[in-house]
């Protein structure tokens, strides 16, 4: 288990290194970083200070190392719009985005896992068909169409819920449901096929043949095994939640990181874009690391270091 965990942590560190390097390369490719980070209208003294601070007169390798130092210290430049530190501008939006994405993830999992297992246990019945027909939606309805449709029904026509803003918890309902429904559809499909695969295995037949009650076969034998491939998709869900937050926050005027990213891209506020890019990269790497470690916890074969994860 320890060597498995160490190898995963090593891989995560390499990916982080790649992400920071990519940010460095992109930043250098697009021109003078002083102008890019500070904007074209900064006073000349600010450029001077910035170049000295970031060591832009040094050789590129030294600059590269200095860039790592700056990232580690959280010195990611200033927002062009209000001159505050980019990391501060982004940081104050993070709780608002978590307020949407965490409930959405819980909603995703509860609905998606439940529906997927229900579909698999009732294979080829009308329940299965209905769940699968609805879940096609998750692949074909874009989040902005889903969000606007919900907004049209519940905010514009029925006037039950507010259409935008972040004043109360009621404002969070439509965005969370929008993100949750789409993710749940994807999880349901994966859970269903993972369950069906497991239910066809010999050990399930053995368990029922030796007289284990069906409930225990499902809870004790089928679900833990089906959880292994399903975990992979949950790691992937974090990525799609982040991308979904960008769109959904914009639809519902929710002042989180996603909406900040859209306005920063539109205004070319590059220090903020860079900060968000690094933030999301770090989040993704940590999420994938958590999934990998959870694999080791769920799958005893991995803990013993005997076999590769069942994909």
């Amino acid at each position: 288990m320890v060597s498995y965990a160490l190898s995963r942590i090593g891989r995560a560190a390499i990916t982080l290194l790649l992400i920071v390097t990519a940010a460095f390369v992109i930043l250098r490719l697009t021109g003078d970083p002083a102008i890019i980070i500070l904007g074209p209208d900064a006073p000349p003294a600010a450029y001077e200070a910035f170049r000295r601070n970031w060591g832009l007169d040094e050789p590129i390798l030294v600059q590269y190392l200095a860039y790592f130092g700056a990232v580690a210290e959280g010195d990611l430049g200033r927002s062009m719009r209000d001159g505050r530190d980019a990391i501060e501008v982004v940081g104050e939006r993070i709780p608002l985005t978590l307020a949407l994405t965490l409930p959405a993830l819980a909603f995703n999992l509860a609905l998606g896992l439940g529906a997927g297992v229900a579909a698999a246990l009732n294979r080829n019945s009308w329940i299965d068909r209905a769940i699968m027909a609805v879940s096609v939606m998750g692949f074909t309805v874009p989040s902005f169409v889903m969000g606007l449709t919900l907004s049209l029904i519940f905010a514009v026509k029925l006037r039950w819920l507010p259409a935008g803003g972040a004043e109360s918890w009621e404002h969070a309902i439509l965005p969370v449901v929008t993100m949750g429904l789409i993710g749940a559809a994807i999880i349901a499909r994966f859970t269903r096929s993972a369950m069906l695969e497991v239910l066809g295995q010999p050990y399930i037949r053995t368990a029922s043949a030796k007289g284990v009650p069906w409930r225990r076969v499902i809870l004790g034998h089928a679900l833990p095994n089906a959880a292994i491939p399903t975990l992979t998709i949950i790691g992937f869900m974090v990525g799609s939640l982040v991308a979904g937050a960008v769109v959904v926050e914009s639809i519902f005027s929710w002042p989180g990181v996603g909406r900040l990213l859209v306005s920063a891209v539109a205004n070319r506020d590059l220090a903020v874009v860079q900060t968000i890019l690094l933030l999301i990269g770090f989040t993704m790497v940590l999420a994938n690391l958590a999934v990998d470690l959870a694999y080791g916890w769920i799958d005893p074969r991995l803990r013993a270091g005997r076999a590769a994860p069942a994909k």
């Binding site: 992400i19 891209v265 790497v285």
Partner: peptide, 16 residues
């Protein structure tokens, strides 16, 4: 590992 939409947004910001 990275959601493509975020990469695309960053590229659009940097390159126009």
């Amino acid at each position: 590992a990275m959601p493509f939409m975020i990469i695309a947004l960053a590229v659009l910001a940097f390159l126009g």
